[in-house]
């Protein structure tokens, strides 16, 4: 009984295990070439690098599971970040970080709802809608709000980037800590996991991706579910935007947009099906880890950083290709 259950687990999370194995093998390889890799400082900095992509990926993951695709989230992120920063500086420069994140998040929710209106009420495909809203949001930001980099952010945002936990002394005597941003990312990952697993709306996200018609027939309110999905994407994007500018210590309205396809790639790498209904939060998080590991560690093993994209491309092709071949074989074609 126990054995069959664990076998079942293996089978159901096979993809996640494969990605995990790749991460482990890659880490061991990199570490054996350059022992610096194992240093606490490096690991902490790697983890910090997963935060922005990770927050975006959680939203992207939700949309993919529901069987659609969203490419406007980076535009929403940069919009919320820039507008919130400006607003806060203008009205209440002393605002705390939680308030700032809430403002940005709620702004994101509103923008996400615009997507939801088109997608659920007018029944337009997500790709087209978010192509339109994404370029509108960024265009609006750069035309009507500003193109200048904000060099002096609200104090609380700068302070946020300096908050660290789990302090450790490195060999050189430097004390390093884990960025609180990573904790925020993981906290939201857990929250999304719980929401998907233990709420009826969460199950509806999977149901929607599995069979849309059946979802409606069973009596789910698809409109409500889609507003939940795109609202959440907006919230996470707003959060990602603010965190990004906090890490960068400036508010650059030209940032983030252009990374959306890499984020989707990370989610897909983690085993989420692009046709909907399948995927786990754990997988999506692992996908982000893997991508960040490749992006940040090639240089440690002496591979020049300009190899990054090619390597990422090959990994995407190998991983999706092996899944595709497996499915082909199991269908016996």
């Amino acid at each position: 009984m126990k054995i069959s259950a664990s076998k079942n687990m293996l089978k159901r999370f096979r993809h996640e295990f494969i990605i995990l194995a790749i991460i482990v093998v890659l880490s061991i390889t990199i570490g054996s070439i350059n022992s610096q890799f194992y240093s606490v400082g490096n690991i902490y900095s790697l983890l910090k690098s997963t935060v922005i992509m990770g927050l975006f990926a959680l939203g992207s993951f939700l949309v993919l599971v529901s069987g659609d695709i969203d490419i406007s989230f980076t535009a929403i992120g940069v919009f919320c970040m820039y507008v919130t920063s400006k607003l806060v500086l203008l009205v209440m420069p002393g605002a705390g970080i939680v308030l700032i994140m809430l403002i940005a998040g709620l702004m994101g929710v509103l923008l996400g709802f615009i997507n939801a209106v088109f997608i659920s009420l007018l029944k337009m495909p997500g790709l087209i809608v978010t192509l339109g809203t994404g370029s509108m949001i960024r265009g609006f930001l750069l035309t009507f709000i500003g193109v200048r980099i904000i060099n002096k952010l609200p104090d609380s945002m700068i302070a946020f980037s300096k908050i660290t936990l789990l302090h450790k002394a490195q060999e050189n005597g430097h004390i390093v800590g884990l960025s609180i941003g990573f904790v925020v990312f993981i906290a939201f990952a857990i929250l999304i996991y719980l929401a998907l697993k233990y709420t009826v709306t969460g199950r509806a996200v999977y149901a929607l991706g599995g069979d849309r018609v059946a979802t409606a027939r069973v009596g789910f309110n698809i409109t409500k579910v889609q507003f939940f999905i795109y609202g959440t994407v907006g919230f996470l994007s707003g959060l990602a935007g603010v965190t990004h500018s906090s890490f960068m210590r400036n508010g650059n309205p030209f940032d983030l947009v252009g990374t959306e396809l890499s984020v989707i790639a990370a989610v897909v790498l983690g085993g989420t099906s692009i046709t909907g209904g399948k995927g786990t939060v754990f997988g999506a998080v692992l996908g982000v880890f893997l991508l960040v590991l490749i992006n940040n560690s090639l240089i440690m093993v002496g591979i020049p950083s300009y190899w990054q994209r090619a390597v990422v491309g090959i990994i995407i092709l190998l991983s999706t290709g092996s899944v595709a071949l497996q499915e082909r074989r199991s269908r016996g074609v």
Binding site: R203, Y206, A207, D211, R217, V218, G277, K278
Partner: peptide
Amino acid sequence: DLSLFPNLTVAENLAL
């Protein structure tokens, strides 16, 4: 077409 969710378990299909 039965209107079941192919990606969910039997238990969930029944209980949702």
